[in-house]
């Protein structure tokens, strides 16, 4: 193959590629100005986990370990314990509760199996997605970080309504 045909071929490619680029210039932009603007998340978005409580503020988790068993990346660690107090004074809804509940976000793949496995609806995916930290050890989140009563929600997102057509926002270009 000669040099000339090389030049011709590469020029063709450049023109073809750049034509795509240039064709976007006149179109409307949909870049979200995060973090100045909040991101709109799908209702079923799988963010950082939330551990739920019941109406009395008791943890719903009974430390059955099914989430840990279901977890494909083995990132959930639980230590179960016994709470002998009267039902209304307990930490959890049952005598059995999770003394320690850790999720290692260095390993979590946000597959949602833990949520599906939970027989008590105690764990769901929340919407917090800003999980980056400066120290890898900080990726290990404890019960204090995960409990719905304690987890600090980021101001940088809003959740779409269930009938809101979020997709078109992105597609309509």
């Amino acid at each position: 193959m000669s040099i000339i045909s090389d030049i011709v071929e590469s020029t063709k490619s450049i023109i073809k590629g750049m034509s795509v680029t240039f064709s976007y210039i006149p179109k409307a932009k949909w870049t979200v100005q995060y973090p100045e603007e909040p991101v709109t998340l799908q209702p079923r978005y799988r963010g950082q986990h939330l551990l739920h409580v019941d109406e009395l503020g008791r943890e719903k988790c009974v430390a059955c370990y099914l989430c840990a068993a279901a977890c494909p990346s083995d990132c959930i660690y639980i230590v179960a314990a016994d709470d002998p107090r009267a039902p209304e004074e307990r930490t959890g809804v049952d005598e059995r509760y999770a003394e320690v509940y850790n999720i290692d976000y260095g390993r979590c793949i946000f597959c949602g199996y833990c949520v599906e496995a939970c027989p008590k609806d105690a764990i769901t995916h929340g919407y917090n997605f800003e999980l980056s930290v400066y120290n890898r050890a900080d990726l290990l989140k404890t019960k204090d970080d995960l409990l719905i009563t304690k987890q600090k929600q980021s101001p940088n997102y809003r959740v779409a309504f269930s009938d809101e057509d979020v997709d078109s926002e992105y597609k309509e270009v």
Binding site: A63, C64, Y65, A68, A69, A80, D82, R96
Partner: peptide, 9 residues
Amino acid sequence: YRHQTRPWE
């Protein structure tokens, strides 16, 4: 051993 862990663990 009550409410300590689960057998598969």
